[in-house]
Nucleic acid binder design. Structure first.
Lengths: 213, 213
DNA sequence: TAGATTGTTAATCGATTAACAATC
DNA sequence: TAGATTGTTAATCGATTAACAATC
């Protein structure tokens, strides 16, 4: 499969294509042109065609794109045609929210175990999943072929924990701790920083307000 | 204040500057050059100087930047020198997680009220905050000078709810519902889409794996 | 066939990096 | 003063948009 070094800008648009195509599919729309999709999704038709052609020619001249086929193709491109085993570390409010959200499992991401360092949490159950002691996480990762770690612990200790799970063989980290972890080449980290998101909102509200003056 | 139409790329880096400068401050670092900051934060020194100079000349030739002063300036740029009143709508797991996270309040974002449509939730309390009926949200927003709505409800009904709160005078929306809401010009929306984030991780893990072959 | 729409090349626009004079 | 480092201009790089031949 030809990898032409896809830019991050393109990659971040892929899940949006996938979502909008899924909605079209739910509404029994069978075909769509880049122009029509453009009106729904808010990217230019030209950009849509450019984006998709990074991965192959999925359309047909004079017709457009078959919604179902394109949705499936993008799913494959995103790697959603295979299951992932995950562990979640830090069963606080956010960790529980993610554990309880069924949407991820439906997309093939299964949380196999929960971990926490707090003795009061260890042994409790959430959704049939017992909370295990963080101390044993390395052994668990090695023994259960875990691909992804979902890190929901506070800033302090987060880098150290990430060092440990990377050492145990984790390949991808979905990181909610408010740090930019350092990891060896070949380990993928996706950071979700809610504070940064909120501050961006704050900036834009302020800027918007000033423009009005 | 000169607004030179700052690009989104720059804006999204501002919270990172703020965070790293805050950490330097915690570590009693008093001055830093763009080169040193570059090594910590991972942007080029040139980019750092370009970014900052969009907002003013905060440095001093031959010296660098005063950490405390720069941190404060970026805080101002982000609009963190004033308080915001917020309401949170949808007190599920994620909504509770956000309600319980004290970091936002410490930055000046105060959740003044919680709303839910589920009769079982209405009347319950979280952190001294009673959960109110979503039906009365418009009146509440008007009467309490609410700036920001934190939307943590499912996809269905999210656009309708957003229409209502925008009609009631909300100026900024921190949206966790998995839609890209349509809002009138002048209303700021910051979307957090966890599914898109997870799918991006999936793509990058797949790509990384293929490169190794 | 005629009309529509893709895939793809070329043109434009914008963001990042490099370079260096200004100056602390 | 000499050395360091900014602020800013110019050069480069990359991403988006426009255009259109190919073709269904």
């Amino acid at each position: 499969m030809g990898n032409k070094n896809i830019s991050m800008a393109v990659i971040r648009r892929l899940p949006k294509y996938y979502r909008y195509l899924g909605e079209l599919l739910d509404n029994d729309v069978q075909r769509i042109s880049s122009k029509e999709l453009s009106e729904i999704i808010g990217f230019t038709a030209s950009q849509i065609r450019q984006d998709l052609n990074n991965f192959g020619g999925f359309g047909q001249q004079g017709y457009g794109y078959n919604v179902e086929a394109l949705h499936k193709e993008i799913g494959k491109i995103l790697g959603l045609d295979r299951p992932y085993n995950a562990v979640l570390i830090g069963v606080g409010n956010l960790g529980q929210a993610i554990t309880n959200y069924s949407g991820f499992r439906n997309s093939g991401f299964e949380i196999k175990a929960l971990f926490d360092a707090n003795p009061r949490m260890i042994g409790l159950k959430i959704r049939e999943l017992e909370i295990l002691d963080s101390d044993i996480i390395e052994d668990y990762i090695k023994e259960h072929e875990i691909d992804i770690a979902i890190v929901c612990i506070p800033k302090n200790g987060a880098q150290e924990l990430i060092n440990r799970i990377v050492g145990a063989g984790i390949k991808g980290i979905w990181n909610f701790a408010p740090i930019d972890p350092e990891v060896p080449k070949g380990i993928i980290v996706e950071n979700v920083n809610l504070t940064e998101s909120l501050f961006t909102l704050s900036y834009l509200m302020k800027e918007n307000n000033e423009l009005k003056k």
